[in-house]
């Protein structure tokens, strides 16, 4: 990629960090909010956690156009399915529809998704549907370009039977870690918690996230750093 020139013709894509985590009673989904065309941030506050039905959400990564069209179709099919069935669709059905579209059109689509939700039969479930259109039921799933920074962290930090708050704190921490290291992830952290009681959406603005190794406090002006902290900027 030519970093000197902003390529606005590049497809609109989401170099992303997306996460889905189960806990005892439900699931927590998390995502950053950066959408880019080449090296230009086209949207710094996008919502990559899309609602499919009342109780199922999907985290989208890869090409924005492809993932939107897939989730639009799945939402449409699930509405029909819910009416025909007379009761809410299960997470498994939703994930299978995502898989079906992703697999049947795998030559056309550049998108990886994480489907998460709660239903009365199986409780909270997370399904990963990566690039080729496989479906994997997992206790937790991570995706997008930022996920490569998180595998080790999750192996260490994820525990069976977490509480809701523990799970959400884990997700926020993980996304903020990925935002710190991955250039294609950034902005804010959005989470969605789904359990038997319903859906809660939370929002963590970028300047309220924890700071990691060598990260600087947010400043309105770079001159603040020079004036306040140390007179010799290179003397750290």
């Amino acid at each position: 990629m030519d970093l000197g020139k902003v390529n606005l013709d590049a497809p609109h894509s989401m170099g992303t960090t997306i996460i889905g985590v189960t806990y005892n009673g439900g699931v927590v989904l998390g995502a950053d909010s950066r959408t880019s065309t080449g090296v230009y941030v086209a949207n710094r506050a996008s919502d990559k956690i899309t609602q499919l039905t009342d109780n199922v959400f999907v985290c989208r990564s890869g090409s924005a156009a492809d993932s939107q069209i897939v989730s639009d179709y799945v939402r449409y099919f699930l509405h029909q399915h819910t009416i025909q069935l007379g009761q809410p669709a299960t997470v498994k059905v939703a994930a299978n529809l995502v898989r079906l579209l992703a697999y049947n059109n795998k030559n056309m689509l550049q998108t990886g998704m994480i489907v998460g939700g709660w239903d009365k039969y199986e409780g909270g479930k997370i399904y990963g549907v990566p690039l080729g259109g496989t479906i994997i039921e997992q206790p937790f799933s991570i995706g997008g370009s930022g996920s490569s920074y998180l595998y080790g962290f999750f192996d260490q930090a994820w525990k069976e039977g977490m509480t809701k708050d523990e799970a959400e704190q884990l997700v926020v921490k993980a996304v903020s870690l990925a935002i710190a290291r991955d250039g294609a992830s950034g902005g804010v952290v959005r989470t969605v918690i789904i359990n038997s009681e319903g859906v809660t959406r939370n929002f963590y603005p970028g300047d309220k996230l924890p700071l990691w190794h060598e990260e600087l406090e947010p400043h309105n002006s770079l001159l603040d750093i020079l004036n306040s902290t140390s007179p010799e900027p290179m003397n750290i």
């Binding site: 902003v6 606005l8 609109h12 065309t37 086209a42 949207n43 924005a64 156009a65």
Partner: peptide, 22 residues
């Protein structure tokens, strides 16, 4: 809304497009 040539869309309070968007 903004709509990109590949068919993706965004919903925003303020939006710019084209070569002068930056």
């Amino acid at each position: 809304h903004t709509i990109y040539p590949h068919g993706s869309t965004d919903t925003l309070p303020f939006a710019t497009m084209g070569s002068g968007s930056l």
